[in-house]
Amino acid sequence: MILEHLYKSYGNLAVLSDCSFSFSPAGTYCLMAPSGAGKTTLLRIILGLEQADQGSVSFPWLSRPADMSAVFQENRLCESFSPMDNLRLVTGKSLNQDAIRRELSFLLPEESLSRPVSTLSGGMKRRTAICRAMTAGSDLIVMDEPFTGLDEDTKKQTISYIKSRQNGRLLLVATHQPEDISLLGAQLVTLKDGKLI
């Protein structure tokens, strides 16, 4: 994924300023920056949810528009649906019920798979959102602070699941925890003064 000369500002506040970077197609990257530095804005531009004032995001190794999946800061799950249904909503019939159950079982207790998401704990919801992002067919997986609310053991188990399901896809994780870089085996990318370094 190539970011070329991205600019984004809100009024007089410049968030991205001539931001360029080249990500390798199967790479794992941890994006770090202080709060309010523009991480979420950059991720939203990459996901196509926001327009940059200038510049472009491209995937030169693809001859079609890139498929993306994401873990948002606020999970964005359908609260009345079960984890199974939330996954089915994005995968359609490309995965059958057993396959989805198997995927979720890596991260969630069996009895929680058919319960409405609204009855699950914050950590369980987070893992459902992570599982959804990993299960959806995509070229790029974007995660915005995915391990918030997970204890150390669960976090390690979740990272192990993410690595096993990455399957040569580009993974970009925004985080505040320096140890995530080594746990994910990722390359560090820092957003500073509106630029990626």
């Binding site: 196509g48 949810l49 498929d67 993306m68 999946s69 994401a70 948002f72 964005r76 994005v90 959806a136």
Partner: peptide
Amino acid sequence: ALLEMSQVFRI
């Protein structure tokens, strides 16, 4: 927020 999610996942 759910509509944005559906846009990203191309539901």
